[in-house]
Computed example of a mutant assay.
Amino acid sequence: APRTLTRAVQQVTGRTAKAYIVERIVLEAKRLLAHERVTAARCASELGFPDPSNFSLFFLNATGLRPGAWQAATIPD
């Protein structure tokens, strides 16, 4: 049940289940963008987002940057 999951995750991590899941998805997205150097659209697909624009908005809300901007700022040329 959602409440049971949230309670268990909160006991271990101090965060809600949703916050923990968002953190893990963002971490994996950053790994794909930085180390695999995939496009934002490919990253969205690999993470199961139905549309690249949904992923871009999710990433923007979580990090303050669009995936392409984060990738450009993180990866040196």
Score class of each variant (00 low, 15 high):
Gln11Leu: 14
Ala72Arg: 09
Leu32Thr: 00
Tyr20Lys: 04
Ala44Tyr: 02
Thr4Cys: 13
Val12Gln: 13
Gly68Pro: 01
Leu65Gln: 14
Gln10Leu: 07
Arg24Gln: 14
Gly14Lys: 05
Thr4His: 13
Lys18Pro: 04
Arg31Pro: 03
Leu32Asn: 02
Ala69Met: 02
Phe55Tyr: 08
Arg24Asp: 12
Val26Asn: 05
Lys30Gln: 14
Ala29Val: 07
Pro76Thr: 04
Leu33Tyr: 00
Ala73Glu: 05
Thr74Val: 03
Glu46Met: 12
Leu65Ala: 07
Arg24Trp: 05
Gly64Phe: 02
Ala1Asn: 06
Arg24Val: 13
Arg7Leu: 10
Ala44Glu: 07
Gln11Met: 10
Phe59Glu: 01
Arg3Tyr: 12
Arg31Trp: 09
Pro67Glu: 03
Ala1Thr: 07
Ile21Gly: 06
Ile75Glu: 02
Glu23Lys: 11
Thr16Tyr: 07
Val22Met: 06
Ala8His: 13
Gly14Gln: 08
Asn54Gln: 14
Thr4Tyr: 06
Gly48Arg: 02
Gly48Leu: 06
Thr13His: 11
Glu23Val: 05
Thr74Tyr: 03
Ala72Leu: 14
Arg7Ala: 08
Ala40Gly: 15
Val12Ser: 09
Ala40Asn: 00
Arg3Ala: 12
Pro52Val: 08
Arg37Lys: 14
Ala69Cys: 00
Thr16Ala: 08
Leu60Glu: 00
Thr4Lys: 09
Glu46Ala: 12
Pro76Ala: 09
Glu23Cys: 05
Gly14Ser: 10
Ala73Met: 02
Ala69Tyr: 02
Leu27Cys: 06
Arg7Lys: 11
Ala8Thr: 12
Gly64Pro: 06
Arg15Pro: 12
Glu23Asn: 07
Pro67Leu: 02
Ala19Pro: 04
Arg3His: 12
Thr6Tyr: 09
Pro67Gly: 02
Ile75Trp: 04
Ile21Arg: 04
Leu65Asp: 05
Ser56Leu: 00
Thr4Phe: 11
Ile75Gly: 01
Gly14Ile: 07
Glu23Ser: 10
Asn54His: 04
Pro2Cys: 09
Val9His: 05
Gly64Leu: 00
Leu5Pro: 03
Glu46Arg: 15
Gln11Lys: 13
Ala69Thr: 09
Ala62Val: 05
Phe59Gly: 01
Ala72Ile: 03
Arg66Val: 00
Ala44Ser: 08
Val22Asn: 09
Val12Phe: 14
Pro67Cys: 02
Arg37Gly: 07
Gly48Met: 10
Pro2His: 11
Gln11Glu: 08
Ile21Lys: 06
Thr39Tyr: 06
Glu36Tyr: 11
Trp70Ser: 01
Tyr20Glu: 13
Thr16His: 06
Ser56Ala: 11
Glu46Cys: 04
Arg3Val: 09
Ala19Ser: 13
Arg31Gln: 15
Arg7Tyr: 08
Ala44Met: 10
Arg42Ser: 12
Thr4Asp: 13
Lys30Arg: 15
Trp70Leu: 00
Arg24Met: 11
Asn54Glu: 10
Thr4Val: 14
Glu46Ile: 04
Gln11Asn: 11
Trp70Tyr: 14
Leu27Asn: 15
